[in-house]
Amino acid sequence: MRRTGRFLLLALAAAGLLALAVGVAAALALRASGLSARPEPSALEARLARAARRFAVPAGVRALRNPVRPGPAVLAEARAHFADHCASCHGNDGGGGTELGRRLYPRAPDMRLPATQLLTDGELFDVIENGVRMTGMPGWGGDAPPEESWKLVLFIRHLPDVTPAELLEMERLNPVGPRERREREEDERFLRGDPAAPAAR
């Protein structure tokens, strides 16, 4: 009994020391990084984060199938929605290569790749509706009917096959500031043959 008690005390002490060491190491790492968003997340961190996100999605949600049937009109709607609301971070092609997407922590993912494409419909829907805490992904649920998020899931599935013509159409739908809108309109007037359009800038 006494030996068991001593062993337990030693084990507890070791566990306590280990926890202290881990805590100190974590504090030092935190201090060194400054919580900067500039370094690339490590592969381990990315893997743990994805696993945590997967774990957090209820099995019932993960098993959901998209109730919206695909079709040209639905895809066009979803494409317009994506261009207007999502592309500023994700890019029109879903590649995440925008100024914002490259500077978020974690980075906006390349949604054409398996890491996104292998998520279930329910998981994609959940990310759109609820966002992902401590990332740049907002939760959009509540403002619009869930059907809008399901349509976006269809478009995300289409991303690996998006065409140059679709990308061009999306660019015209991306939100722009007043200066760029004015420049774009001047470009279009010039190309149509309006002699009054300015020469250059």
Binding site: H85, S88, T98, E99, L100, N174, P175, V176, G177, E180
Partner: peptide, 8 residues
């Protein structure tokens, strides 16, 4: 998002 896009 429009302001952020314009900034980009």
């Amino acid at each position: 998002s429009a302001v952020l896009w314009a900034a980009a």
